[in-house]
């Protein structure tokens, strides 16, 4: 274990978030069993009051998840210097491979929390709490996910041993190595560029079409496309976007862009990408809920807003990503 202020902060925050969510899930379970909107008993009144507490708990948990995700990334960056062979966050993650699982669990947990918060807000707009059961059912799924994340986080940080010789991003994301990272880094840049920029055009077109015509199928299409574009974008970051930011054709690391040397450009890049994906997904996730009469109006009003937000954020992401491709002297042309 490495006693580092950032690690202490992360572990404490993780325990607090888990506490909030477990307590929320406990309250949620009670609500699930006892909820009866037609009853006017004292118990039902108490349950309705508890929903306020639950929303607050989850709101806090969400805010803390975002904060700790950023601190997690930066801490990975910050402590790489103590590992032999590490040059960025990749090295830290490789020093104890559980870290990759933590990263995955964090992204999933964050997405899950965000979806929950939005469902909760939709629910609160309606008179008759129509989504209560769905919400609290989801909460019972979220709690184990966060428990897993916390457990992994502890295993990761407690298992970090400075004497382990780790490998840097140059090994993992090299165009000629083995493994998933290397496979992606070695993807031919030119076809992927076409997929990336073509995909962007398709995505923006699908968004515009969504705003013009209110058809359920289009909304599902947008949600699917947003997931697809997330995959393409991540692959593109590794295969060519990062290389443009580093101005080095052999450097493919998706983490070094988070460093001060590259003006922390990775943070706005990943934030806009994930936020765009989230809003795109929400358009599709909320679609089946429109069958519930009392929230139909709320969702119908929200969907165009989400669509616009998603398009805007994705556009921003592409601008940040493509900036050096357009405005720097560096070119990958010889490497197509």
């Amino acid at each position: 274990m490495i006693l580092h202020p950032g690690i202490l902060g992360l572990l404490i925050t993780a325990v607090l978030v888990l506490g909030l969510v477990l307590y929320g899930a406990y309250l949620g379970a009670i609500v699930l069993v006892r909820w009866d909107l037609d009853s006017s008993s004292e118990e039902q009144l108490a349950l309705e009051r508890k929903t306020y507490l639950l929303s607050t708990l989850m709101g806090h948990a969400m805010a803390l998840e975002i904060l700790s995700a950023l601190i997690f990334l930066y801490t990975l960056e910050d402590i790489h210097a103590i590992f032999v062979g590490a040059m960025c966050a990749t090295g830290t993650l490789n020093a104890n491979p559980v870290g990759w699982w933590v990263l995955g669990a964090k992204i999933l947990g964050l997405l899950f929390c965000a979806v929950w918060i939005v469902l909760n807000r939709i629910d609160q707009r309606a008179e008759d709490y129509p989504l209560t059961r769905l919400k609290y059912g989801l909460l019972l799924l979220l709690a184990p996910l966060l428990a897993l994340e916390t457990w992994l986080l502890f295993r990761f940080f407690l298992g970090l041993d400075p004497s382990v010789i780790t490998s840097c991003c140059g090994t993992l994301f090299s165009g000629s190595g083995a493994g998933v990272g290397a496979e992606i880094a070695g993807l031919p840049a030119f076809p992927l560029m076409i997929a990336f920029f073509g995909g962007t055009a398709v995505y923006l077109a699908a968004g515009t079409l969504n705003l013009r015509q209110a058809r359920p199928r289009l909304r599902y299409l947008l949600a699917g496309l947003s997931l697809w574009m997330l995959g393409i974008s991540l692959a593109s970051i590794i295969a060519f976007i990062s290389s443009y930011h580093y101005e080095l054709p052999t450097h493919h690391c998706p983490f070094c862009i988070l460093q001060a040397d590259y003006h922390y450009i990775g943070y706005p890049m990943y934030l806009t990408l994930f936020a765009a994906t989230f809003y795109g997904l929400m358009v599709g996730i909320a679609e089946p809920l429109r069958r519930v009469a009392s929230v139909e109006g709320v969702i119908a009003a929200a969907q165009p807003r989400w669509t616009r937000l998603s398009m805007l954020l994705f556009g921003l992401f592409v601008v940040i990503a493509a900036w050096p491709m357009v405005f720097s002297d560096f070119t990958l042309e010889g490497y197509y």
Partner: peptide
């Protein structure tokens, strides 16, 4: 970063 860490150690 230091401010973020401090925030998570105290305000949170």
């Amino acid at each position: 970063y230091a401010l973020g860490v401090l925030f998570s150690l105290t305000v949170v």
